[in-house]
Design a binder for these strands. Structure first.
Length: 874
RNA sequence: GGGUUGUUAGCUCAGUUGGUUCAGAGCGUUGCCUCGACAAGGCAAAGGUCAUCGGUUCGAGCCCGAUACGACCCUCCA
C-alpha cells in the first residue's frame, strides 16, 4: 500500500467523527464510574462559530476527552440559549423581508414565526461544533425554551416571588430604544466619547437676570422641572427658591439647592430632568419634583416634549442647538470627553427611562455564592478573577429581570381590572389566587404581564436544568452529574452568568454548580485588536477548518493561549498545526515502512540505550503534563507534547533506532517503538483527536471498538534521572560534533575521528554505535591524555579530540576558549564567594550547599581543561 | 475617579517557595543540506544590562516602594 507523502485531514476527520457518533462514544448515562461533567456555556441560538467559541469549546473538548480516556464517565452537555433580544431582532428582520410588521401581529402569531425561525436557522453553531471535533453528548442537547426548561424558569420565578425576593417597582432603568426593552446594568457598556458641553441660559422669572447651566444633552431641557445649585455656592445664594424659565417652552421651574451638585463643574448650576437621568431622578424624588417623560419608547420625542414631536433624540439635538443660539439662549459650547452607556445588544445609546419593571433582590442570595469563592469551594483559574468577583458581589445591585419582548419566558404575573397583581403558574391558578387574595375585586378580566424574563434569568439555571434538576429534583441524572466538574467560559460574563449560576446552585441545590471555573482569554488578531464582527478581523472558522483541518485549527488556537491571558491569533499558527500533523504522519510512514517491507527481524541493532532513554523521557513528560492539567495550563501541555514528539521522538529517538537502508529492525525495537508511538498519540489525542485516531488505527491491526478516543490514558512510570542525564551528555556531544562540522563547512558525509578522554568510558561504550551513526564517526577511540593538534570539545569534565586536517583558526579558537574561560572563572568566583560567606553557609539549606559545592568542582575541572587546551594552542 | 493586572530575545510567551551550567521555549531571521519518513523537511547559528529608579538581602527576573507606558473591570460629575 502506498501511503501519501502528505497528510490530508478533510476526509479523515469526517470519517472519524462519523465513526465515533456511530459507536455512541460521546453518549453518557449514569453508572458506577466516577462522573466527569461539563455543561457548555450555551451559545446564542442565533450564533455562528467564531474564534471565541472555537477556543472555549476546544478546551472543554480537551478536558472531556482526557477524562474519558482516564476511564471516567465523561459527559459534555451541549445546547443553546434563546437569546431573546438577538433572536427577536432576527425574527423582526425576517418578517420585514416578507413585508410583515411586528406591530400587526398578535403575540401568538409572532411566536409562531419565532419558532419557525428557530427551527430553520437556530442552532447552526451546534452543527459547526461537530466540525471542530467537539465530543458533546448530542442526545442531551438542551434549549432554554424547551418545555421542561421553560417550566423550570417559571417555577423559579414563582418560588423567588413567594420568598419575597422578586418585586415589581417603578425604577429608572436602562432603556434600549432600538430593542425597545429595559436592560440590566450588566448589559450596558460605557464608552468614552467626544461630546460637547452646551452652556444655556435660563431667564429668571420677573427679572432680566439669567442663570446659566451646562449640559451635554440640550434636547432634554424640554423635560426640565428644576434647576439645582449647591447651597454653599455664593454665586447663587440670591437665586435659590426663585423661578427660572425653560427656554423655548417657557416652563417655569424652581431653583433648588442640593449638595449633590459639584460647584466646580460647568457653571455650578445643574438642570434637572427627573424622567431622563438617574441622578436627576433621585433629586426629583428628594425634592418632590414633577417628572416629564419627553421620549417615546423608540427614542423619538413624545407629545410631552411639546416641540420636535416624533423626531429622534439625536436629530433633535442637532436642531435644538441652532434654535437656542438663534434665540440667544446658547452662551457657548465646549468640547468634553464623557462616558456614555451603550446597549450590549444593539449598541445604541442607552436612554435612562422611568418604568415599571420586575426586580430580584440580590443581597442575601449572593452571600453563599460569595463565600463559595472566598473559601475556595469553587476555584477560579486564574485566581485573579477572585478579586473581580468579590468586588462585584460585595456591591451587588438588584437585578432588573423583565424585558419588553415576546420571545422568552413570559412573566407569570397576572393583573385584574384594579391593577392588583398575583403571581401564578397559569390562568387557573391566578384566578384562584385572586379569589383568595383580592376577594372584593370582580377578577373577571385577568390579564398576564406582557413582558418576558431576561435570558440570563433562564441560563443561570443551566447546570441544574440541563439535568432537569429544577423540574424533577432528585432524578438520577442530576444526582449523578451535579455538581459538574469544570466550567470553561469567557471572563466577560463572570457577572452575567457565572456569578448567577453559583447563586442559583446554592439556592436550588444547596450545592455549588461546578468545582472549577476556567476563564479563557480574549481572542485578538495578531495586531492585538479584539476580534469582532464590526472589524471583520475574525476568520471564517468553517473555511479555516476546511482548508487546514480541525486538528490544525485547534492546535493554532491552543498553542498561543496562555492560561488566563489574551491570545493573539495568527493563521501561521494553524499552519504550524498542519505541519505538525504532517510530521506525525511521516513518522508513521517511516514506522509502517519497517512493517511492510518485512524488515522486522529476530536479531538487529541493539537499541537498549535509546529505548530506555525514551521510556524515561516519556515518563518524565507524562508527569509534567499531569501537573499542567491540574493547573489548567492547557497551552503548556500542548507545547510540551509538541516538543516531545517533534524533538525527542522524531529528531532523536527515531533517528537513533532507524535501521540503515537495507538493514532490518529487531522485533524488540519495533515493538517498543509502536508502544511509544501509541502513547504519544494518546497524550496528543485530546488536542488533535482526528490525526491521532487515524495514526492509532494504522499503527496496529485494531480490534472491533479499539479506538484511541477510548483507550486507556498512559500513566507516568518511574523516572531514572541518571538515564536522562547520561543521554543528555551523549546528545550534547553529538550536537557539538555537528556544530564543529557546520563551523568548518564540512560535509555531513565526511566521517570524523573521535578520541575520548573521559572518566566514564562505559557510558560512551554503551552509546558507541549511536554516536558513530548520528555524528558520522569513522573511528571511535579512548585516550588517556590530551591530544595535540586536534579540535578539543569539552562537556562537563569530559574531553573530546577530533583530529582534523582542515585549517583550525588558532586565534579564533583561542578567543573562544578565553571567552568561555572568563565566564567559567567568573562563575567559579561567585560560587566560591558564596561558599566563603559565613552568612550564606549558615542560612542556606543543605541541598543548596551541596549543589554549590558540586558547581565548584565542575567549574574547577572545566577551567583546568580549558587552560590545558589553551596552552596547547600557544 | 476607583480597582485588578501586566511590562523577560524581532514576535508570542514560560520562568514554581529569592540561590549565576536558568536568563529559557516556540515562531521568525541567518548559514549549510534534496541524506531512502517528512522542503509543510533536516542540521546548526545569531538575538535579551529580564520597562525605569530606589530599597530589603550574603544573594533579586523573582520580595517591597515609586515612576513610565499598556490592558481589563467598575464608576451618578451634568
Amino acid at each position: 500500500m502506498e501511503i501519501a507523502k502528505t497528510y490530508t485531514p478533510s476526509e479523515i476527520e469526517d470519517k472519524w467523527y462519523a465513526e465515533w457518533i456511530n459507536k455512541n462514544i460521546f453518549h453518557s448515562e449514569p453508572d458506577d464510574r466516577e462522573p466527569f461533567t461539563i455543561v457548555i456555556p450555551p451559545p446564542n441560538v442565533t450564533g455562528v462559530l467564531h474564534m471565541g467559541h472555537a477556543l472555549n469549546n476546544t478546551i472543554q473538548d480537551i478536558l472531556i476527552r482526557k477524562a474519558r480516556m482516564e476511564g471516567k464517565n465523561a459527559c459534555w452537555v451541549p445546547g443553546t440559549d434563546h437569546a431573546s433580544i438577538a433572536t427577536e431582532a432576527k425574527v423582526v428582520a425576517m418578517l420585514r423581508e416578507r413585508g410583515i410588521a411586528k406591530r400587526d401581529l398578535s403575540r401568538e402569531q409572532f411566536l409562531e414565526y419565532a419558532w419557525e425561525w428557530k427551527e430553520k436557522y437556530g442552532g447552526i453553531i451546534l452543527q459547526q461544533l461537530r466540525k471542530l471535533g467537539a465530543s458533546c453528548d448530542w442526545d442531551r442537547v438542551s434549549f432554554t425554551m424547551d418545555e421542561d426548561y421553560y417550566n423550570s424558569v417559571i417555577k423559579v420565578f414563582i418560588d423567588l416571588h413567594k420568598k419575597g425576593l422578586i418585586y415589581r417597582g417603578t425604577r429608572m432603568v436602562n432603556w434600549d430604544p432600538k430593542a425597545q426593552t429595559a436592560l440590566s446594568d450588566e448589559e450596558v457598556n460605557f464608552k468614552e466619547v467626544n461630546s460637547k458641553l452646551y452652556y444655556i441660559q435660563y431667564p429668571i422669572a420677573g427679572s432680566s437676570d439669567y442663570i446659566t447651566i451646562a449640559t451635554t444633552r440640550p434636547e432634554t431641557i424640554l423635560g426640565d422641572t428644576a434647576i439645582c445649585v449647591h447651597p454653599d455656592d455664593p454665586r447663587y445664594y440670591s437665586l435659590i427658591g426663585k423661578k427660572a424659565i425653560v427656554p423655548l417652552i417657557n416652563r417655569e421651574v424652581t431653583i433648588i439647592a442640593d449638595t449633590y451638585v459639584d460647584k466646580d463643574f460647568g457653571t455650578g448650576a445643574l438642570k434637572v430632568t427627573p424622567a431622563h437621568d438617574k441622578n436627576d431622578y433621585e433629586l426629583g424624588k428628594k425634592h418632590q419634583l414633577q417628572s416629564i417623560d419627553i421620549f417615546n419608547p423608540d427614542g423619538t420625542m413624545s407629545e410631552a416634549a411639546q416641540l420636535f414631536i416624533g423626531l429622534d433624540r439625536f436629530a433633535v439635538r442637532k436642531k435644538i442647538v441652532p434654535e437656542l443660539e438663534e434665540k440667544g439662549f446658547l452662551v457657548k459650547t465646549e468640547d468634553i470627553k464623557n462616558n456614555v452607556g451603550y446597549s450590549e445588544r444593539t449598541d445604541v445609546v442607552i436612554e435612562p427611562r422611568l418604568s415599571n419593571q420586575w426586580f430580584l433582590k440580590m443581597k442575601d442570595l449572593g452571600e453563599p455564592a460569595l463565600q463559595a469563592i472566598e473559601k475556595n469551594n469553587i476555584v477560579f483559574h486564574p485566581s485573579k478573577y477572585k478579586n473581580l468577583y468579590r468586588h462585584w458581589m460585595e456591591d451587588i445591585h438588584d437585578w432588573c429581570i423583565s424585558r419588553q419582548l415576546w420571545w422568552g419566558h413570559r412573566i407569570p404575573a397576572w393583573y385584574n381590572e384594579n391593577g392588583e397583581i398575583v403571581v401564578a403558574e397559569n390562568l387557573e391558578e391566578a384566578q384562584k389566587a385572586f379569589q383568595t387574595q383580592f376577594p372584593a375585586a370582580p377578577n373577571k378580566n385577568i390579564t398576564q404581564d406582557e413582558d418576558v424574563l431576561d435570558t440570563w434569568f433562564s441560563s443561570w439555571l443551566w447546570p441544574e436544568e440541563v439535568f432537569k434538576g429544577i423540574t424533577h429534583p432528585g432524578n438520577a441524572d442530576i444526582s449523578y452529574y451535579y455538581p459538574t466538574n469544570v466550567l470553561v467560559t469567557a471572563p466577560e460574563i463572570i457577572f452575567f452568568w457565572v456569578a448567577r449560576m453559583i447563586i442559583a446552585g446554592y439556592e436550588y441545590k444547596n450545592q455549588k454548580p461546578f468545582n472549577d471555573v476556567y476563564f479563557t482569554g480574549i481572542v485578538r488578531d495578531k495586531l492585538g485588536r479584539k476580534m469582532s464582527k464590526s472589524l471583520g478581523n475574525s476568520p471564517d472558522m468553517l473555511e479555516l477548518i476546511e482548508k487546514n483541518g480541525a486538528d490544525s485549527v485547534r492546535f493554532g488556537i491552543l498553542i498561543c493561549s496562555p492560561a488566563g491571558n489574551d491570545l493573539l491569533y495568527d493563521e501561521k499558527l494553524v499552519e504550524q498545526g498542519r505541519n505538525f500533523s504532517n510530521k506525525i504522519w511521516n513518522a508513521m510512514r517511516l514506522v509502517k515502512g519497517w512493517q511492510e517491507q518485512g524488515k522486522i527481524t529476530a536479531e538487529g541493532e541493539d537499541n537498549t540505550q535509546a529505548i530506555q532513554w525514551f521510556d524515561n523521557k516519556l515518563n518524565q513528560v507524562l508527569a509534567e503534563i499531569e501537573t499542567y492539567y491540574t493547573d489548567f495550563k492547557i497551552s503548556e501541555i500542548l507545547s510540551t507534547i509538541y516538543k516531545l514528539i517533534w524533538d525527542d521522538f522524531c529528531a532523536w529517538y527515531l533517528e537513533l533506532v532507524k535501521p540503515g537502508r537495507d538493514a532490518g529492525i529487531s522485533i524488540q525495537t519495533y515493538d517498543a517503538t509502536i508502544v511509544f508511538f501509541e502513547k504519544l498519540m494518546q497524550v496528543l489525542h485530546p488536542f488533535m483527536p482526528f490525526v491521532t485516531e487515524e495514526i492509532w488505527s494504522l499503527l496496529r491491526n485494531r480490534k472491533e471498538n479499539e479506538y484511541c478516543i477510548i483507550s486507556k490514558y498512559p500513566k507516568a512510570g518511574e523516572i531514572n534521572k541518571n538515564t536522562l542525564a547520561n543521554a543528555d551528555r551523549i546528545f550534547e556531544l553529538i550536537n557539538k560534533i555537528r556544530g564543529f562540522r557546520n563551523e568548518n563547512n564540512l560535509s555531513p558525509k565526511e566521517a570524523l575521528e573521535l578520541n575520548i578522554l573521559s572518566t566514564d568510558e562505559n557510558l560512551h561504550l554503551q552509546w558507541e554505535s549511536k554516536i558513530i551513526k548520528l555524528a558520522n564517526i569513522s573511528s571511535f577511540n579512548f585516550i588517556k591524555s590530551p591530544m595535540e593538534g586536534a579540535k578539543q570539545l569539552v562537556i562537563k569534565t569530559d574531553e573530546y579530540y577530533i583530529p582534523h586536517q582542515a585549517d583550525i583558526n588558532v586565534e579564533e579558537e583561542k578567543e573562544k576558549i578565553n571567552k568561555e574561560l572568563a565566564y567559567t572563572k567568573g562563575f567559579l568566583n561567585s560560587v566560591v564567594a558564596k561558599l566563603s560567606n559565613e552568612r550564606f553557609v549558615q542560612n542556606a539549606k543543605a541541598d543548596i550547599l551541596e549543589k554549590e559545592n558540586a558547581k565548584r568542582l565542575d567549574a574547577e575541572a572545566k577551567i583546568k581543561a580549558l587552560e590545558e587546551a589553551l596552552s596547547r594552542l600557544n
